[in-house]
C-alpha cells in the first residue's frame, strides 16, 4: 500500500523497485567519486604554493559547497519527493549560518 509503484503484480513491482534502487545507487556512486575528486582538488589547491590565497580561499569554499550539495541531494536523498519541509528547514539553517558568519567576520572587528 505504501508502494507508489504498485502494478498489481508484486513480483514485477519488486523487480522494478530493485532496478530503480540500483540506478539510484549508481548515481550515488558517481556522486561519491566526484566528491573525492573535489576533495583532492581542494587539498591540491592548498598544497600548491603558487596560488594566491585570494584565489584559493573562495575556490575551496565553492568546492565545499558543491560537495555538501552532493551529500544532501544524493546521499541524504533530498532530491526525492516528500523532502519539501526538510529542504525548507535546512535552507533556513543555512540562511542563519550565512547571517552569523557575515556578522562575525565583519562587525566583530576588535
Amino acid at each position: 500500500m505504501a508502494n507508489q509503484t504498485n502494478s498489481g503484480n508484486e513480483r514485477v513491482d519488486l523487480a522494478y523497485r530493485r532496478r530503480k534502487n540500483a540506478e539510484e545507487m549508481r548515481h550515488q556512486m558517481i556522486a561519491f567519486v566526484l566528491m573525492i575528486l573535489l576533495t583532492l582538488i581542494a587539498f591540491a589547491a592548498v598544497g600548491y604554493e603558487e596560488f594566491s590565497h585570494w584565489f584559493v580561499v573562495p575556490f575551496i569554499l565553492l568546492l565545499a559547497a558543491v560537495q555538501v550539495a552532493f551529500q544532501l541531494y544524493y546521499f541524504m536523498h533530498m532530491s526525492h519527493k516528500g523532502h519539501e519541509f526538510p529542504a525548507m528547514f535546512i535552507y533556513g539553517g543555512v540562511a542563519v549560518m550565512l547571517l552569523l558568519v557575515w556578522a562575525f567576520t565583519t562587525v566583530v572587528w576588535w
Partner: peptide, 12 residues
C-alpha cells in the same frame, strides 16, 4: 578572546 561575541550570540 572577545566579549562582544557573547553579546552577538545572546542577541541572535
Amino acid at each position: 578572546g572577545n566579549t562582544i561575541i557573547w553579546e552577538h550570540l545572546f542577541w541572535v
